[in-house]
């Protein structure tokens, strides 16, 4: 599994998505597959009750288990649910992008993911570093940051450094804030300061970037874990792998899975998705505009003619020279 890559990729994805999309949704999508599963993969204890899966990788990435959370179809289901319940295009699309990014990023360890589940249970993996969740959280951390997993995280950090504009306050103000009603809600309803909002936006970048170095220092200094830069390392961990079928079977599985996924997306789009999408208007932030129109003159000009508009019954666009129809919540 990838570690800091999941946080860092969210900023890059938002910057390179050409349509209006919620950053928070991308971030949530990047976390969702592991959110409810990682704790159980490592095992936990509550009082006398303890849970630890017999085969961590099979439970985490396989079926039966929670491997379906690491499939592309699951992202589509989640996005549709968000579109249906929360009626937000920006959140539905963001969640889909984030979840798919997580799934594709996890293809790089030695177990990989079932990309096309439930249409195929074929695992897709490049085997770049060892999957070691069966060693527990600390064993997994030491193995990941003692192998090419570290290089993978540093690659994403370098990508983000190249796209540093995605981290500026200007980018936040111009592209992140206006694309998501959640920011406005946090600012106006919860009353968070601008510094708080910007810190919130940067929090997962700081956390992601810093934990690369923190875990690496910990692994090298405290655990004395040897660094192994070989493909599929580190050599010192008992890594989990999946058996790869012959090429013909692999291609057949891929064809079945890809066809199933495309057909599923198409049917879902025609049956529900398109209707929900069209019913959901894109989010448009309406700014409050201060005006200095003298009250007396304004009332003289509109006496007896635009009374209905003044009472708020006209179309929102009609009163654009004075105030937008929707005011910011704190002004209302």
């Amino acid at each position: 599994m990838s570690w800091a890559a999941h946080e860092l990729e969210s900023y890059i994805l938002h910057k390179h998505t050409k349509v209006k999309v919620s950053y928070l949704a991308i971030l949530l999508g990047c976390f969702l597959p592991d959110m409810g599963t990682k704790g159980t993969v490592y095992g936990f204890e509550i009082g006398s009750y303890s849970f630890k899966p017999e085969s961590a990788w099979d439970y985490h990435r396989g079926w039966p288990g929670v491997g379906f959370t690491h499939s592309l179809a699951w992202g589509v289901v989640l996005a549709l649910a968000v579109l249906l319940i929360f009626k937000s295009r920006e959140w539905a699309l963001g969640l889909l992008i984030g979840q798919w990014a997580h799934v594709l990023t996890d293809c790089f360890d030695s177990v990989g993911v079932m990309l096309f589940f439930p249409f195929s249970e074929q695992h897709y993996s490049t085997g770049m570093w060892a999957y070691a969740a069966q060693e527990g959280r600390y064993g997994d951390a030491a193995a990941y940051y003692g192998s090419l997993g570290l290089a993978w995280d540093l690659f994403w950090l370098a990508m983000l450094a190249y796209n540093y504009r995605a981290l500026t306050a200007k980018y936040f103000n111009q592209h992140v804030y206006p694309a998501d009603p959640a920011w406005s809600w946090l600012r106006h309803r919860v009353g968070l300061s601008d510094r708080f909002l910007l810190a919130l936006y940067h929090a997962y970048f700081l956390y992601g970037a810093c934990r690369i170095f923190a875990w690496t220092i910990w692994a090298q200094v405290s655990e004395d874990a040897p660094m192994d830069w070989k493909w599929g390392g580190p050599y010192w961990v008992d890594k989990a792998t999946v058996e790869h079928p012959p090429v013909t079977e692999f291609l057949a599985n891929t064809l079945v899975g890809l066809t199933g996924l495309v057909a599923f997306c198409w049917v879902v789009w025609l049956a529900v998705g398109r209707r929900l999408w069209l019913r959901t208007p894109p989010y448009a932030e309406v700014e409050f505009v201060r005006t200095s129109v003298p009250r007396q003159r304004y009332s003289d000009e509109n006496t007896g003619t635009d009374g209905a508009e003044d009472a708020g019954t006209g179309e929102p666009g009609d009163s654009s020279d004075t105030e937008p129809a929707r005011q910011s919540p704190d002004r209302a």
Partner: peptide, 19 residues
């Protein structure tokens, strides 16, 4: 707080003492 000029997509630069 919420009335601070320059917040929330107003197109200002937003760096440093921007709000």
């Amino acid at each position: 707080g919420p009335d601070v000029e320059g917040a929330g997509g107003d197109g200002r630069d937003g760096e440093g003492e921007d709000r």
